[in-house]
């Protein structure tokens, strides 16, 4: 099996994604309108929201991979689930970092128990447990099975977590992206572009990670 980027098609994807992300950065810095009272702080939302979207998409993929693994018992789906869990957690961590960076100048406090952010935090904690469960398992085959089940359980819990944190402190103001409708025009297009770039980047990362995990498995099996 050759390295992932030796494949010409994959290499082309890498170049394309890099170009897209560079373009996205330029668009965010120069092409988006300034939001009154928030100025530069608001620009982080072009990264924050797409990260959240990719993170949740990734955890959704963990669940789907879990269901597939339990029904098909194919190692392939375990690799998909693990790769999606790892990359998802990376993006979710990014959400948890960019959230406070924005909140500090705007709300005056770094952490606010805002429903979406709180749900993200709880999910992040669940996935910390997911990785611990994997590494403390007896042997990899059993780890794969418990991970698949945990991925399903975790995603099934998301709506309930969101609902309960939302009603838990209803006085806290909602996420500014909800107010986007009242913002100056010209925000939507660059935002959607950023969302698109992140999604493409995500799928390239996912495929790359799956490839690496496959090499790991092969190495383990051959006992090198």
């Amino acid at each position: 099996m050759q390295p992932f980027f030796s494949d010409r098609k994959n290499f082309a994807w890498l170049i394309a994604v890099m170009a897209l992300m560079a373009l996205n950065l330029v668009s965010i810095i120069y092409r988006t309108p300034m939001v009154p009272e928030q100025e530069w702080a608001q620009k982080i939302f072009y990264l924050h929201v797409p990260s959240a979207w990719t993170g949740f998409l990734s955890y959704f993929i963990v669940m789907v991979a879990g269901i597939m693994f339990l029904s098909k018992k194919d190692q392939k789906w375990d690799r998909v689930g693990l790769a999606a869990a790892e990359i998802g957690t990376l993006f979710i961590a990014l959400v948890l970092i960019t959230g406070p960076v924005w909140a500090k100048p705007i709300w005056g406090r770094a952490w606010i128990w805002e429903p979406r952010l709180t749900t993200t935090l709880v999910l992040f904690l669940i996935y910390i447990g997911y990785f611990m469960m994997r590494s403390f398992s007896e042997y990899p085959e059993r780890a794969a099975r418990t991970a698949a089940v945990l991925g399903i359980i975790a995603f099934a819990d998301v709506p309930l977590i969101f609902l309960s944190v939302k009603f838990w402190s209803p006085e806290i103001q909602s996420h500014p992206q909800v107010e986007m409708a009242s913002q100056p025009p010209g925000i939507l297009l660059p935002f959607l572009f950023s969302l698109f770039c992140f999604t493409i980047l995500y799928f390239l990362m996912l495929r790359y990670r799956i490839h690496v995990l496959k090499l790991h498995d092969r190495k383990d099996r051959n006992g090198i």
Partner: peptide, 27 residues
């Protein structure tokens, strides 16, 4: 039941269980 055959299962259970139970605790 899931953690029963893992190492450190005693510690593992609350670490995974508590965040998953967050809707129950709040409610």
């Amino acid at each position: 039941g899931m953690a029963m055959r893992s190492r450190l299962s005693n510690v593992l259970v609350p670490i995974i269980l508590f965040p998953l139970l967050c809707p129950v605790i709040i409610a």
